[in-house]
Design a protein around this nucleic acid. Structure first.
Lengths: 234, 234, 234, 234
DNA sequence: CATGAATGAGCTTTCATTCAT
DNA sequence: GATGAATGAAAGCTCATTCAT
């Protein structure tokens, strides 16, 4: 009774984690490459096992299904990103909002630059939430990202750095979207969509600075007088 | 004979356009629904022909393949949107940048509200450009959108409405992303992802106004004094 | 809307029935053989298509799934049996219960003798109702059989041929079981389980007569006196 | 070494029997449940070991294969049933045929009522002999059952209780089938196929009595006069 | 111009069993 | 004696596309 349906359904990984590092990493890398190249829907387990040199049966001893593998890959990416967290981000209360934001974006792009495939997969995934079976997972990544932004915004408002009238939820969403957009811009415009690490330019700080400037002041000319409706007078 | 081999190579549509309106529209609607429900990768031609009540062979006389159908659907959506273009957008030189931007966003959401499935498909698609065979197509949609934003930005700078130091290309990208984000926010947050027209709230102007405000002034606290409505006083 | 999910799900057969007779019959025969040899659970569609010389994809254009094929096979068997219905069974009111019963059993075995594989499949199937997805189907076959027996029993009672105190439902069940048992006895004991038509003996009337006798009078010695409890006195 | 290769060939059980009682019983229970739920063909060793919490390799040290396990389960059920044998059945020569038969059926149903899963498995299995690899086993269970009935019949004839003209072999088969049918009737009609012990009604004696009556006298109307209770008057 | 049967490669997943530790 | 990772054949089923009529 208690024995029924135990470690059979919650499968997420288990045996996979005990694999020799080399083999485990190989499988992850192959899978990541597959997801990056074909997207989740078109990723083929056949190809993955072939490229990783493992038996198809073995795959299913590591992961419950394709979604499970994918989830694991995302988790690994999330965790790897933690290694990039810098002193600035570790003490968020000691810096102003825009410094923190700049650091956040910088760290995101730095990770992506050093791990283009992982970065790309992580990016694609948050962007595309239209995979039914994984919607919840994606939503949770999005939500936690937005919540983090909202906490930063709150702090910024409290310190008088930010306009207190902004809609926290709305702006939180937009910051997440703009972070993704920064990746998109860097990846597609600067690097022309290449996943080859060699093609990734070194200097993404200009992009980030433009982004911060954009978020900080918007695009309006600064010197103009404003009428009471907030619409520019001539 | 020659006509036949013609049909066969330049396939994009041709025979399809001569169909009775009702049949053609049915096929389009079914396809749109399919793409909305399953995404491009998982959309099934089998299901489409079954749901549209046409023969499998007929489908391939209308379209070269799934991508061709998809391209057609997108083109139809693009064209339908034109019907929403308002006087304001038809004479862009007579309005200031933020008015135009507001109108652009408003029109986009109005179309989506009245055609949720089409709106969703059009949105998802621009967002997800990771479908290899359609990348070029998506890119062209993006590019033309961005170019349009850039032309607006240029005009705004020329008039002194906008900060002349912005990077046109960068900001153009961001505006496109933010437009998509406005849809995303409206669709996922306000309407909780439902495609049912009945669930779609009526009032998206607050979202647009927040967006315009965000783009205009950013989030930084203004040194000017603010009245209680958050509108700048002189 | 109406077009959705039409002839896509109710699949039972459709295209299959339009096949050239020869091909259709071949597939049916191969399938019947497969079911007879391996049972439903172990029957392999791979083997069936290989033995029938058709493509796997074709199979699924004929049948929705294995259960659908099976259902069709059973329906064919049911229908074929109708050809065996004799004048006696066509005018049931004109014969006494035991004559009808004898004829029913005779016809059942005659069909099975001439179509051993079909007979065996039909028999196995009613017997084994533990295939989840087909339980309803089997139950309906059983139920209609039992209902028919019950109607015969009622008529027999009305005519004074049968003990009016019997439990109709119970006896109906038992008659069905005994008919299956007659097949079982004939098939396994007399023919030693061979499906080869050549091994099937000619004369199953002795079995039927014993069965009728058993059902008619039971096994009790007929001459004994009975005490009031119906238990034999010494 | 030699001991090891011994274990390996005569596999049926051996190492399994030395297991701590609790573990052994758990495995048996899990297996029984699996067979009851999925039938033999669809029973999964994967699921069994998972649900029993044992290693896959261990399973194959206990049993040669699925059939071996199954055989063991059947043997256990057979043995458990022995505990239900009553004084009446222990001294068969001291009771008349119908008393013995009634007791046999009663004991069978009593066991099934107290051990629904085991009862169901034992029943299903004897009923379905179309599992190639186990046919011999099933046949032997059937044969020994039939032989026992035949011995009872012989004794009954010798005592003048039974019609001396019956075909022993035939009637023996039918009695076995009717015993299974009584289970079938009780299980499917009375308990509606539920394996939940709580759903099993208490009173199966009416069924048995109808069965005895059926076997004793058949269904033909008696020429003797009947009192209103349906019990024969002298 | 319409049809829809035919195709076989491909899909994800489960299987019973082996064997090195 | 116990383990559980490894295996690859096989399962049922869907796919986009072709082509003869």
């Amino acid at each position: 009774m208690t024995a029924r349906s135990h470690n059979y359904t919650l499968m997420p990984k288990n045996t996979f984690l005990n694999l020799p590092d080399e083999k485990r990493t190989l499988i992850e890398d192959v899978a990541m490459q597959e997801f990056a190249e074909f997207g989740f829907a078109n990723a083929s387990i056949n190809r993955i096992v072939a490229n990783a040199g493992i038996a198809k049966g073995s795959f299913y001893q590591y992961f419950a299904n394709k979604g499970d593998l994918f989830q694991h890959i995302l988790a690994r990416i999330s965790q790897e990103k933690l290694a990039y967290v810098t002193p600035v981000l570790q003490s968020p209360t000691q810096h102003d909002f825009f410094t923190l934001l700049q650091e956040l974006f910088r760290v995101g792009l730095a990770y992506a630059k050093n791990n283009p495939i992982a970065g790309y997969v992580g990016f694609e995934i948050i962007k595309n939430q239209n995979i039914d079976e994984l919607q919840e997972l994606f939503q949770s990544y999005r939500t936690s990202g937005i919540e983090f932004y909202k906490s930063l915004l709150l702090q910024g408002i409290a310190r008088g750095e930010l306009d207190p009238d902004i809609d926290l939820d709305f702006v939180g969403h937009m910051l997440l979207e703009l972070q993704l957009a920064s990746f998109n811009y860097y990846f597609n415009v600067i690097n022309h969509g290449s996943l080859d690490p060699e093609d990734w330019g070194d200097d993404f700080m200009p992009i980030i600075n433009k982004m911060i400037q954009f978020i900080k002041n918007g695009v309006q000319a600064q010197t103009e007088t404003l009428n009471s409706t907030g619409v520019l007078s001539q």
